[in-house]
């Protein structure tokens, strides 16, 4: 049996230890705060998982609402400053919109095009503004450009693959290096031959039509940046068609969209795309008629 004196000593020792522990924590925190202020480090607001954030002051049922919030990416439970947004909410919205706008209004870097041994051509659009205003010009090329494509590319390929900026250069930058080798590997596994890849600036989906005709490609496939949302600016789409014709209906094209790290990852999408292309070559058709 332990006597009362011993017990008191033990309790006092434990309390002492705990106090030390607490003060050690406090010191650690103070050190961290100091280090942070020394580095002038402000947290990256885009790192915050919005689904887990709840900014309402004195809510009635925080946990119950957070549980519901797991089921949506909508910006909920944000609280308010008067009838306006809290600063954090406002800045996060602006940051996400900034990423989306930059994806649209910047260009794919020459570095990426060089790294992937591509050559670059333009549609009839002179600049980004014209590209956005004139969807009709984003699917056409000058005769000189078509001659250049024809000179630099292998003719009559089974599959012609190329990339275009579309509405998100960021999507091309984020995915092209992963998706292109994945498609190539998939097709090589099926003994399907790919033509010479290249890059189209200011390109719309239907730019595949004159390209397919110019090179006499059986299947034509464009990897193109999607219109960015606030959730991601990195989403890429792959549009494919068999025997593409100028002015063909949309229903003759197949698309695999939502290719990005949080959607279908590029490597996985590449394998899927190879399967669709194989089906097109076997069934000699595409779009709604394709059985996959």
């Amino acid at each position: 049996m332990i006597n009362e004196k011993d017990l008191t000593e033990i309790v006092e020792r434990v309390i002492e230890e705990l106090e030390k522990e607490e003060s050690r924590e406090a010191v650690d925190q103070a050190v961290k705060r100091e280090a942070k202020s020394n580095n002038d480090e402000i947290v990256d607001i885009t790192d915050v998982d919005l689904k887990k954030q709840f900014l309402v002051d004195n809510p009635e049922n925080r946990e119950a609402f957070l549980k519901l919030k797991e089921s949506t990416s909508a910006r909920l439970g944000v609280g308010r400053a008067g009838p306006r947004y809290k600063t954090e909410t406002l800045l996060r919205f602006r940051a996400d919109h900034a990423a989306a706008m930059d994806a649209v209004f910047t260009d794919v870097s020459d570095q990426l095009i060089d790294d992937m041994n591509l050559f670059k051509v333009k549609t009839l659009c002179r600049d980004k503004d014209e590209y956005l205003k004139r969807p009709d010009l984003g699917k056409k090329f000058s005769d000189e450009t078509l001659a250049e494509i024809s000179n630099k590319c292998e003719k009559n390929p089974q599959v012609q693959i190329y990339a275009a900026d579309g509405l998100s250069s960021t999507a091309v930058e984020a995915n092209l290096k992963d998706i292109f080798p994945a498609i190539k590997q998939g097709l090589e596994g099926y003994n399907i031959k790919i033509g010479t890849p290249f890059f189209v600036q200011y390109g719309r989906v239907a730019s595949m039509e004159p390209i397919a005709k110019c090179l006499n490609a059986k299947v034509c496939c464009v990897l193109i940046g999607e219109r960015p949302g606030l959730a991601t600016a990195e989403s890429l789409s792959c549009y494919m068609a068999y025997d593409a014709e100028i002015g063909m209906p949309e229903s003759k094209r197949n698309v695999i969209s939502n290719i990005h790290a949080d959607g279908t990852p590029a490597v996985e999408a590449g394998a899927h795309i190879a399967d669709v292309i194989k089906a097109m070559l076997e069934q000699k058709t595409s779009g709604l008629d394709l059985d996959i």
Binding site: R80, F93, R227
Partner: peptide
Amino acid sequence: GVPVGDDVMLNYQAAGYHDAQAVRE
């Protein structure tokens, strides 16, 4: 009105729930 002006389905931005009261006032 949509939450913080961000429509997560249609992928466009509109007025936010908060704007209702601010504009009314």
